[in-house]
Computed example of a mutant assay.
Amino acid sequence: MTDKTVIVGTGIAGVSAAAAMRAAGYEGVIELVGDEPELPYRRTTVSKEIVRGAKTPDEVRIKSADWYEKQDVTLRIGERVESIDDLDADQVLLATGGRARTFGELPPGVRTLRALADVDDVRAGIASGADLVVVGAGLIGSEIAASARELGCDVTLLETAPLPLARVLPPQLGQMYVDLHKAAGVELHTGVAVTGIEESDGLTVVRGDNGQSWSAPLVVLAVGMAPDTTLAEAAGLELDPAGGIVVDELGRTSREGVFAAGDVASMPNTLVGGRHRPEHWQHAQNHGTAVGKAMAGAGEPFDEVPWAWSDQYGHMLQLTGWPSAEHDVEIRGSLDDHDFTAYFLQDGVVRGAVGIGRPREIRAARIWVAERARFEEVA
């Protein structure tokens, strides 16, 4: 009897797992199932090149259409899996990623921007250079604001925290992004919690807890991602209270034969302790590859140091490890010139790094994090 694997999720984690299984010699049936009616694509481009119209969806496919046939992977797009128990499979991989967080029921003028299906409405709203309000100044919200400014929109950017990217950047780096936004003409308001969004006179109005309100034809919510654990919950899998599906170092869940990979998986952090669930493209790709190998019987424990990037206003921010605003920070280079690396230290040990214009230093820092190196001994 031929083995059968069903991978639920057609993002980078799912596609990478399928590719890794074949590369590791798995000869069974592989079905790749996703609810988006699209050939798998690079989601990181949605808030940048795609929404600006700089690239088409066909230019950002993860694999060409004929790759799936050549690899004997059955691609089932536009299909929603209702239950793991309905799948006729020996193994199941949940690579379901996440969904954009929202504030519940919202008026028609509010959009999120996470999937290709979101692009047309957002692009139509910003292509004419109309006003735009973006709620959330994290990586995605900042990228949307930068893309809209490039198209000539008047952009208002709202953030609950005192500074952009406050969870991972110390104040001096957060202030650098304040300056970047303002220099580009973005109206940035920090320390504002949204209390309501409503329609009024043909516009969408966002109200803040400071008594102010902002209105525009279009409002884009960029307030984070919620891991899609719907199938896992229904199947009784162990979940992490902090979010995601609990897996071990090989991607195995609490149920035999069921694995999870990518943004939805909460995995052991062998370097700093506890669990972590990185929400980065590169991590999802590499974790999907590792779990695919494990499902093919060729797995090794996965303990990679995460790495990610964000492109805003022509400056590529790269980050690695687990930088925290609570860490001590050593900065090499110039924040004013947007040419620096900031090293994040905990009791002298390198835990992460953030930089602009210094990719070699970020690569080195990634190694230092993995080696638990002391900054004074390596820098």
Rank of each mutant, 00 (worst) to 15 (best):
R111C: 10
V134F: 11
R101V: 13
D201L: 07
F344M: 01
D120G: 11
E233Q: 15
S147T: 00
T112D: 10
D209A: 09
A370E: 12
V205H: 07
I245P: 03
A353W: 03
D339N: 11
G333M: 02
D58K: 01
Q91G: 15
R207C: 07
A115W: 07
V168D: 13
L93R: 09
D58M: 00
Q318P: 07
Y343I: 06
A308M: 11
G129P: 08
W281K: 10
F344I: 02
R275Q: 12
R61Y: 10
D66T: 00
N286V: 14
E159H: 06
H327M: 04
I126S: 00
V186K: 09
P306M: 05
E279K: 07
E143L: 03
E198F: 06
S147P: 06
E377A: 14
D35C: 00
Y313D: 03
M295L: 09
A95H: 11
E69A: 11
P306V: 03
I50V: 14
V8E: 09
P217G: 11
R255P: 02
D58H: 02
E279F: 11
L139W: 10
R275L: 14
P359H: 10
D66M: 00
H181Y: 08
V378Q: 06
D120R: 13
P170I: 10
E59N: 01
W368P: 06
V92R: 04
G251P: 01
V178P: 09
G288T: 10
A65K: 03
A216P: 15
P40F: 04
K182P: 04
I367E: 14
V354L: 12
G224T: 13
E49D: 12
I331W: 00
